[in-house]
Amino acid sequence: MIKLKEISKSYKVGPTTVRAVESVDLTIERGDMVSIVGHSGSGKTTLLSLMGGLTKPSTGRVLVDGTNIWTLSDREQSQLRNRRIGFAFQFSSLIPTLNAIDNVRLPATFSGALVNHGRATDLLELVGLKDRIHSLPGMLSGGEQRRVALARTLMNNPEIILADEPTGDLDEETEADILDIFRSINDKGVTIVIVTHSRAVASQAKKVLRMNKGHLEVNGD
């Protein structure tokens, strides 16, 4: 369902060009659970952003269900991100002025859904934060913020989840909880791509991809 064709992304930094992602060809099938590993700076985050249309490739095409997403209008791209893709970011990504439940509801607002309180509450319960519904992000620990963000990722029932080190700074127990959640939604057919440094997380994936200096090496299980 996501196809990267001859994708490259490079940045001009002063006189030098950083090739963050180079000539990557990749297909992610519906229902896949894929993990991407690799050294820091190898281009994992860039690759994930290319998959979700958050950044434009320097060359190559990104196809979602056969459609080149860079031929879509901004509105169509936004709708795609809103309704079909769920991002989980590497670092804290909550809006600081909104409390936990409002952060979780935010994606629903963009799709014009009015009745979303119940679902947001359920999701906060799923991540174990039912009693922190009205807390502002500043009042939550780093791990709690991550879990609220995960609830937000799930809010619009995405078909594809793109998660960038979602358990990076969490304790093992919380990591296991979150992994459970990913596995159970993957069982329901949701496609999941996880960038991770954790062996435990990578071992859950059906396929492990390794990034190395912008290049992709496949070591499928």
Binding site: S78, Q79, R81, N82, P107, F110, R152
Partner: peptide, 15 residues
């Protein structure tokens, strides 16, 4: 960063 996050969640340029 927040603006980028809003866009990632599906906020359009117009929004």
């Amino acid at each position: 960063r927040e603006i980028g996050l809003l866009r990632a969640m599906g906020g359009s340029r117009r929004f």
